[in-house]
Structures are given as C-alpha cells and as structure tokens.
Design a protein around this nucleic acid. Structure first.
Length: 354
DNA sequence: TAGAGAGGATCGAGGGCACT
DNA sequence: AGTGCCCTCGATCCTCTCTA
C-alpha cells in the first residue's frame, strides 16, 4: 500500500485522497480539543512569502532558506491548531503540500521519486516541531556565576528541567539522597570538623578520608549550586589538598585520579607527545606557535619533567582551551592569601607565581 | 575574515502504547 | 510477553548569519 499516493491536487476531496492506510479519526481522545483539526487544516499558502509562492507557482524548487521559512510558517499554524502534532498529522500536511506542488516540493533524485516523495518534508516538519517544543533553557544545570547577594531568582523550575544525569565520565554528579546514616545536622558537624582538622597539620589522613567520603552528598550540593571557588575553598579546604581532591574525584568518577594519571602517562605519554609534535603541529598556526614557545622554554623549569609539562600544555592548545582559564598568573612575591580571588575564574585554576 | 551564536538536523536511548 | 511504532530527550554536529 505504499507508493499509491494519488497526486490529485483537488481540494474538493480533502484528506481522503492523501492519508495512507487507517484514517482512524485521530486517536487523541482528549475532550474539548478539535480532534478533526487535521482534516480541516488548510495549508496557509497565503502566509508564505511572495518569493516562496513565486517558486511554487512556477514549478521551481525553493532554496533551503525559503523552504525553511515555509516549514516554519506551516508548523506555527499547525501548532496553533493543536499543540501536540503527531507524525500522522505532519505526514498528512506534507503529503497535501507535495500533492499541490509536486515539481517544487517532491523528493526527486535524477528524475526518480524517492519513496513517498514527501518524506523529507515530513522530517523537516517533525524536526521543526521538535525544536520548537524544546525549552530554550538548557536542561542540564550548568555551573553559573553566582554573585553573593543575588539569591538565584532565575532558577529554572524543576519540572522544566530534565532529570539530572551523570555525564562526562561522572558516576555520581548529582547525589539524590543523603546516606541513610546521615542527617543534615551530622553533615554540617562533619564539615565543621574537617575545617578544624585542616588547620592542624597532624590530622589523621584516614579520618580525613572517611569524613570527606561521608560528606560527599553535601559537597556535591555545594558544587552544583554554583558557589564561587572562594566560597567553596572556605567550606571544603581539603578539596585543595591532594588527599581531599582524590577522595572527591574517586567518589565522583570511580577513578583513582593519581594512579590513573601516572599509569596513563607511562602507557601513552610518549605516543601522545609524538603525535602532538609531529602531526598536530600542522593543525594550526596558533598550535605551532605554542609548540615553538614551549620548545624555547625547555630546561628552564625544575621539579617536573619537561615532557609532562609540554604534554599538558599542548593538549590545552590542541583543544583550543585558554591557558588563562587554567593558570592564573600572579607576581613572584605574591602570598597565597594576597591573591585577588575576585579576579580568579569561576572554575578551578592553578595559581602560578612569576 | 574568523569566531560566536542561533537554529536546524541527526543519532541513540528509553519509555509508552497498541496490537498480536 | 514480544513486537513495532511513536514520542521525548540529551548530545552533538552542521550551516548560516551576525559581529568584532
């Protein structure tokens, strides 16, 4: 029953001639709505721009831009009649349109009609409908800059936001529930205890680890609220310490940060560096300049292998990342507490002296 | 003239639902 | 219970346009 689409452009026999197979009078049983809207639906030809109508009437194919304009107008009209346009409706409308102006709208490759001849228009209508229906606000709540006084008045309502999901390698990005043995109060106490322990250099690492692990829920709440680095540093000082950082990373991703990094450095470091310095140097002028700069600086630094430094910086450059958002430069004489935290980016950075 | 941003297109996963 | 179809959603890519 495919392909038997009568191309009768007559308006006098609406819907019957076009809709394939079961025209089971629109299954949507929602009361009050015009369930017959699709049968009565008139293509808003008169609303099309003159340029489109010129093309259609002259049997010419409207260009992509014009075609999109046309699709937009039709979809607006359809969605006014019925906010939940289904595939069947899009198909009917597309079929009607193609039936009226086959030489302008039909899917044809080298003279052959492709499939029904209107599939591409159906898809275009469907895509437009879907894109219209998508909310303009991003579903994933990204960290956004939060000034201290503004108490997030523009929070996206929960129901408009898709379920939070684990992504970018995270397995516990957003923890929904407190551990059963924990309460808000116990979390707060542990957080305070950690702050105190940070002041004492002789803190028991095992205890720190344990406390960091059991407060992971609250840590994620704080991070995902988009609080500033300055604020987070005061609340969770151990994050900025190798131990606390690795506990958090382990919980978040299920990966042992240091072990994985050093293992991969041994395993893939050489190959990556080779690739960067042979193939990627041809990638762009910018990359080549960065590479040359790093070459000049070789041997001037101490403490860390030049290869590792070069690899990290070349990776940054390769992915067009701003070095400034990774490293924040301060004067040689600058003490840790003198760093202007207001000027530091929202995301974590390495503060470099000199 | 390159880069950013908007809008369109596409893909895969997953859920709902009707039908068998 | 299995199957097929449709819909929605997240993610991402592509294309076009605007702007610095």
């Amino acid at each position: 029953s495919l392909s038997s689409v009568e191309a009768s452009p007559t308006q006098s026999l609406p819907s019957l001639s076009v809709s394939p197979q079961s025209s089971s009078s629109s299954s949507s049983s929602s009361p009050g709505l015009d369930t017959q809207w699709d049968v009565n639906f008139e293509i808003p030809w008169s609303k099309f721009p003159e340029e489109v109508m010129q093309a259609l009437e002259r049997g010419k194919r409207p260009g992509p831009k014009l075609r999109r304009q046309m699709v937009r107008i039709v979809v607006t009209e359809m969605m006014q009649k019925c906010p939940h346009v289904g595939k069947k409706h899009s198909t009917d409308v597309a079929a009607k349109m193609v039936a009226k102006y086959p030489s302008s709208l039909q899917d044809v490759i080298e003279g052959d009609i492709v499939g029904t001849g209107y599939h591409s228009l159906v898809k275009q209508l469907q895509n437009r409908i879907e894109n219209v229906r998508r909310t303009s606000t991003p579903k994933i709540r990204k960290r956004k800059h939060q000034t201290d006084d503004s108490d997030q008045t523009d929070e996206i309502p929960l129901e408009e936001r898709a379920a939070m999901q684990d992504t970018y390698g995270c397995i516990k990005w957003n923890v929904k529930f407190l551990p059963l043995e924990e309460t808000q109060e116990s979390q707060k106490q542990k957080m305070e205890k950690l702050k105190v322990m940070f002041q004492h250099s002789d803190a028991n690492p095992e205890e720190v680890k344990c406390l960091m692990k059991s407060t992971f829920y609250t840590q994620r709440q704080h991070v995902n609220q988009g609080k500033s680095i300055k604020c987070l540093r005061e609340e969770w000082p151990f994050w900025f310490d190798e131990l606390g950082m690795s506990v958090h990373f382990m919980e978040l991703t299920g990966i042992d940060l240091k072990e994985t990094f050093t293992r991969n450095l041994d395993l893939k470091g050489k190959r990556l560096l080779d690739y960067m310095t042979t193939v990627c140097v041809n990638k762009s002028k910018k990359f080549l300049q960065n590479y040359a700069r790093l070459q000049r600086m070789r041997g001037q630094r101490s403490g860390c292998s030049d290869d590792v430094i070069e690899m990290i910086l070349l990776l940054l450059s390769y992915f067009d990342e701003e070095e400034e958002s990774m490293f924040f430069h301060v004067e040689d004489t600058c003490l840790a507490e003198e760093v202007q935290l207001e000027q530091v980016p929202l995301t974590p950075v390495v503060i470099v002296c000199g």
